[in-house]
Design a binder for these strands. Structure first.
Lengths: 203, 203
DNA sequence: AAATATACTGAACAGTGTTTATTTTTGCAA
DNA sequence: TTGCAAAAATAAACACTGTTCAGTATATTT
């Protein structure tokens, strides 16, 4: 009875085909270009066929978020190799911001877009993001344990640092830095990162 | 020749009528409910009529942004009454965050939504937002002048504080705090605000 | 009252997500 | 191999969206 297994495989291949098309459209022309009809056309199927493999558009965007979360994890996790917790934390932060700057579209999908939020929780995406987040808080905890901060409120420290990093990236991503000349924005972000690191040393 | 003046007035009234309808729809049912057809129906005109008073939807959203900017200014500017620059800065920050928490829809429109961004620059909205932003940076400058910080890099200090505040609000507004139980989120934001104030004291 | 200018609208175009009835393809037993 | 059932794919429709344009109705001027 290899047939049902083959069918299963084909079904999975089709889901992959759809997702890859969606991903390509997203990366080439932005989120707005990811329409059911666009996807269908690009894989040469009818729009209705998409619905045999994904419940609705939200489910596709959710899958895209998973892809983005994986890219982010790969971008960020090399910091885990650093033994000293403070240096690890700083490197993690640097990589987090760097990810946002290099992949504004992916960052947007992960941390700004409202689109497929009904989903995010019970998808694979959520645990993946959580794992990275846990790594982050554990690193902060390690810093706390080794008295790198005066404060021992790990949760608030972690959240405060995250706020800054997210604010930094999302002001950039959603173009709310118009008051600064374009060529200065990157530099300012750089300086601000250095400053928050300095500030963190005296929490 | 009072007629052309009356016409002018009527034109302005119509623009106001459209904008108020858009604003009502936005506040009652969210940004998605603000469609040209919805606006038209709610003021009992045909959709095409809207285009005689606003170039396109983007121009309407831009006008909505202006309304939001005005509300924000009124929410935030009472801080200007405080003489001591450091206290003024803290109060400004508190009010900024409070505005975001109390009016997530307006905050979204001002600092997150991408929708009518082609416009924002040459609209009335922009100078209004800039005035508040200038007040902010001037307050930071006053703190620098009076040696409240070790650093004298006003621009980076201001930007860093803004990043934190914006990150704080926008993680909340776009619901990226799911890892914290709902009843704790406000409290965590509160604690983080206190922490960044503390941190700022030692920049 | 006739001509002109202004205000308004119905209908259409090209999109969107989604559903349903229908057709085509596939798999298997007689 | 044929006939039939199950599975897969689709055409067409529904209800939306922003926007444009030709044509109608109203108001103003001559």
């Amino acid at each position: 009875m290899g047939i049902i297994e083959r069918k299963e495989r084909e079904k999975e291949e089709m889901r992959r085909l759809i997702l890859d098309a969606a991903l390509r459209l997203f990366r080439e022309k932005g989120l707005d270009a990811v329409s059911i009809r666009n996807i269908a056309e690009s894989i040469e199927y009818s729009p209705a066929t998409i619905y045999l493999y994904y419940k609705d558009k939200s489910e596709i965007l959710s899958a895209l978020q998973y892809e983005a979360a994986a890219v982010k994890r790969d971008h960020v996790m090399p910091a885990a190799a650093i033994e000293n917790p403070w240096e690890r934390l700083v490197e993690f932060g640097r990589r987090y911001v760097d990810f946002g700057m290099k992949h504004p579209d992916l960052y947007d999908l992960l941390f700004i877009t409202r689109a497929p939020m009904e989903f995010i929780e019970n998808q694979q995406c959520w645990p993946l993001g959580m794992a990275v987040h846990s790594f982050f808080t554990e690193t902060v905890q390690a810093c706390v344990d080794q008295r790198y901060f005066k404060s021992t409120d790990t949760e608030t420290i972690a959240y405060t640092l995250w706020c800054h990093a997210h604010g930094l990236v999302s002001l950039f991503v959603r173009e709310r830095m118009r008051m600064y000349p374009e060529e200065k924005r990157q530099e300012l972000a750089q300086k601000s990162f250095t400053m928050i690191v300095k500030m963190a040393e005296s929490i």
